[in-house]
Write a protein that binds this DNA or RNA. Structure first.
Lengths: 200, 200
DNA sequence: TTTTATTTGGGACATTTGTCCCGCCGGGCG
DNA sequence: CGCCCGGCGGGACAAATGTCCCAAATAAAA
């Protein structure tokens, strides 16, 4: 549920300590809550997460928002915008303290063109993202029930994921109210199965 | 709504009539209804649509299916599987008679590595797809109403798109029954606005 | 420590969507 | 010609989800 990509982190780690390219890669910190990319704005940088977690979310005019993904170590931010040269499709916000490598679009595109390993790793990362995004989107439409299962899995990671219930709901594409209902059902179900009902 | 990519078609057109690479690019035809890629199977080829339309769909165990996209001229099929080396994430089926360029994964990956223009065009195509997929997914979750608007737009292209109502519904992630309801509302709304109610 | 927000949990009701089912059409075929 | 089958439209009811609202619990600020 939290996407990661150690392969790229290794490459960037190395590049950053490496001659002239390294000088174009800055290390920056953000603290929880800060916005790295604002939906609809023109971006100038590409980021690689060294540590921490961000949420990547899409807001509609009506105030509602949908969380596309949670990204962790090694993940890239702003590549799409660098490649397509379009304004940012979504917002990216730190949900924990964050340490990132930052470079400008030009440098990123240059690396993409000149560094074969970098190119193929990014390509693979995008392929995986595309697959996951599509599958998630499909599942979300098709499974009215399996949500519950997903919930369980989510619950496991929930402890480690520093997000609010509201954010979880946004990720699942439902309202907070619905999430609460589902969670309650989960509880009842599991107590029926495992522990005989306790009085009190 | 029907994704296209003339830029790649140009490149492939050229490549196919071009020395040794050209020999590895076959021209094939499929007719309406034929399956090019089966979800869950290991693929061996990558396709480029020369003409015609396919639907790219994801099926869940429970029999339901979700249509990820409709692809037309110039679009690529099977790239994700070639890049990630995983089994096919979705099925691809011709919904009109089809003419495609076909090459094996190896050749595709080779082109990706050796041909810079090819590489950057595919990269861009994937970036656009990723953006569109994510945005669509988000919109589908966020807009209970705007479906209607989408419907209108869809209706415009509907004539040209050789698909059934059921397929349209699958694309929208709703049941056929719901689609009918929405369409009816559309009709009533528009007749209220434009034409005063006709008696009999 | 008191006060103020934020987060959380849930009742009551309205709306939307799905499920089941039936009837209508139009084309292919014995 | 009558039959069957796939696509289409829609009624009736059930289930899921959203909206509105309020109250307890926590966290943050004063």
């Amino acid at each position: 549920m939290i996407r990661k990509s150690p392969a790229i982190l290794r490459i960037i780690d190395e590049l950053s300590g490496n001659g002239q390219t390294g000088q174009r890669i800055l290390l920056r910190n953000f603290h929880k809550g800060q916005l790295l990319i604002g939906q609809g704005t023109i971006t100038t940088n590409v980021f690689f997460i060294k540590s921490g977690i961000v949420k990547c979310s899409f807001a509609e005019d009506n105030g509602k928002e949908y969380i596309l993904e949670f990204l962790g170590e090694g993940e890239v931010l702003g590549e799409l915008e660098a490649i397509t040269k379009a304004p940012a499709m979504s917002s990216v916000q730190a949900i924990s303290d964050l340490s990132v490598y930052m470079l400008d679009k030009i440098t990123f595109l240059d690396l993409l063109r000149r560094n074969e390993a970098f190119n193929s790793t990014i390509l693979e990362l995008m392929a995986v993202r595309l697959t996951d995004t599509a599958v998630r989107s499909a599942r979300q439409q098709l499974n009215p029930l399996e949500h519950n299962l997903t919930q369980l899995l989510a619950a496991l990671e929930y402890e480690k994921l520093p997000c609010t219930k509201q954010e979880l709901a946004d990720y699942l594409g439902i309202t907070l109210r619905s999430l609460n209902r589902l969670l309650k059902v989960q509880l009842v179900e599991s107590s029926k199965t495992h522990n005989p009902p306790q009085h009190r």
